[in-house]
């Protein structure tokens, strides 16, 4: 058994803030170490969930695109939506998931822009689903501001 990365990072945060920062003389150095400590604590939060967040977001966007692709009148956009809906993440590396996340978000921006100006009867419901996705996605990425103790 060994401590997981997030456990160690959380420990480093406490050590930096309670033992090292108080020993530093310069105000700027002390402040910088505090910022680094808080960043380490946030990295600890990200460690376990980073891939899961991106994987779920990507799946959520693909589901939206599968539905939207059958509705939008712009045939070229509809095809790109349906094509994107069938893509899969083949690696769980964060860097690989980011590549697909960026591509899907670019398409999501295009879709939302189109839906906002659409007069079609399906547009309000799809717009609501897009916002529900975005609100959930942002909630999923919520970082808790680190506190000692």
């Amino acid at each position: 058994m060994k401590p997981e990365v997030d456990t160690a990072l959380s420990g480093f945060f406490v050590t930096l803030m309670t033992e090292i920062a108080p020993q530093l003389g310069g105000e700027y150095s002390t402040g910088s170490v505090g910022l680094i400590g808080m960043s380490i604590a946030m990295a600890a939060q990200e460690y376990d969930r980073a891939a899961d967040i991106r994987f779920r977001e990507n799946e959520g966007m693909r589901a939206l695109f599968a539905e939207a692709g059958k509705l939008v009148e712009d045939k070229a956009l509809a095809k790109r939506l349906l094509d994107a809906a069938t893509t899969k993440d083949t690696s769980l590396k964060v860097s690989a998931l980011n590549v697909s996340n960026d591509a899907l978000k670019t398409l999501l921006i295009e879709l939302q822009t189109s839906v906002e100006t659409s007069k079609s009867s399906w547009a309000p419901a799809l717009d609501e689903k897009i916002w529900a996705f975005l609100v959930d996605a942002m909630e999923g990425r919520r970082l808790v501001f680190p506190a000692l103790g």
């Binding site: 980011n98 996340n101 960026d102 978000k105 670019t106 999501l108 921006i109 939302q112 822009t113 906002e116 975005l134 942002m138």
Partner: peptide, 11 residues
């Protein structure tokens, strides 16, 4: 990276 919320805000 793409910013869907920022873009929606701008619109």
């Amino acid at each position: 990276s793409p910013q869907p919320i920022a873009r929606a805000a701008i619109r």
